[in-house]
């Protein structure tokens, strides 16, 4: 889908991004994680050419992005940033309509799209369409920011620390919503964050960056079990790596046959949650049920712990 090929950016003698190559899968969330100054935002901004690369190429569906005017390229790529960047002088509906208007959509199509997005993002159109950004809460502003980025049905959505300004509870909700949105619109999302928990929660693949280089690019479980670099294990955290690993697998994926009495847990819950439930209840096994409450099987302490170590 997106091929980043030997991409570099220098400002004077400082190299901010150093020969990075990444292949980003279609219809997934890829997270670029790193400390501040690692070059992760610059890398992201080179994809839609907010920053022009010093060398290297970015291909989207095989086409070199350098081949078309930057502003036209950006209209095809969604872009959401920290602090949402909503236009304070435009209403919620006008904000969302920004890119479709630039693309010259007709009014009927545009209005239908704005209505659809407001509904998807749980913002009642009758109440919110005519409001100005300053009349919204932080979480609502953030949702409008993402809705605006998705308005013109882009195949690719770039997000630069999109949840950085939210408090922890609203952030968790926003992360869940993003997973739903990704499935719903089948968008290819590239997200930049400095928060490893966020990276593990959202990313199907995670790239760890430091000093302009990508140190490792793989599935979250691999980053924990087989870190390629001391910096990667430092980022993923040595002390609670077992718990992190457990949080990456769901009860449904690890379920074993058999019946259990006592505590019950949903198939969508993580093994970390299942273990916590067992510790809390002092039980040896927990029943796993699907979304309708039908039993799928059970999980034992031993079965859970087996998923918490490299294997």
């Amino acid at each position: 889908m997106i091929s980043i090929d030997n991409l570099s950016k220098q400002y004077g003698s400082t190299t901010v991004v150093d020969r990075v190559s990444l292949d980003i899968e279609r219809n997934s969330i890829t997270v670029i994680v790193g400390t501040s100054g690692s070059g992760k935002s610059t890398l992201l901004r080179m994809i839609n050419r907010l920053v022009e690369p010093s060398s290297g190429r970015v291909l989207i569906d095989g086409n070199d992005t350098a081949g078309e005017p930057a502003h036209l390229l950006r209209r095809r790529i969604g872009y959401a940033i920290q602090g949402n960047g909503l236009f304070p002088h435009r209403t919620v509906a006008e904000n969302i309509a920004t890119v479709p208007r630039l693309l010259g959509w007709d009014d009927t199509r545009l209005r239908a799209r704005v209505l659809q997005l407001l509904t998807v993002f749980q913002l009642d159109p009758a109440e919110f369409a005519g409001k100005f950004p300053h009349q919204l809460s932080g979480g609502q502003q953030q949702r409008v920011g993402v809705a605006r980025a998705l308005a013109a049905e882009p195949a690719v959505l770039l997000m630069d620390e999109p949840f950085g300004a939210l408090d922890p509870i609203i952030r968790a909700k926003a992360q869940d919503d993003l997973l739903d949105i990704q499935r719903r619109f089948a968008t290819t999302i590239v997200l930049v964050t400095h928060d490893m928990d966020e990276a593990f929660r959202l990313g199907s693949r995670v790239a760890v960056m430091s000093r302009g280089r990508v140190l490792q690019y793989d599935r979250p479980a691999v980053l924990i079990t087989r870190p390629a670099d001391p910096f990667v294990s430092q980022m993923t955290g040595l002390a609670d790596r077992a718990m992190r690993l457990l949080s990456l697998t769901t009860a449904g994926e690890a379920v074993i046959p058999g019946a259990a009495g006592g505590p019950v847990i949903a198939a969508s819950a993580s093994l970390r949650d299942a273990l916590s439930e067992l510790v809390w209840r002092g039980a040896e096994s927990v029943a796993v049920v699907d979304a309708d409450g039908a039993p799928l099987g059970r999980l034992t302490v031993a079965a859970i712990l087996a998923h918490g170590r490299p294997g």
Partner: peptide, 23 residues
């Protein structure tokens, strides 16, 4: 003018003239 608004405008593909006059 909020730098985030200008940054978002650029990221969404508004031209310099559109950003100046419209934002």
């Amino acid at each position: 003018v909020s730098p985030a608004a200008v940054e978002a405008a650029r990221g969404m593909g508004m031209t310099r003239w559109q950003i100046l006059t419209g934002v």
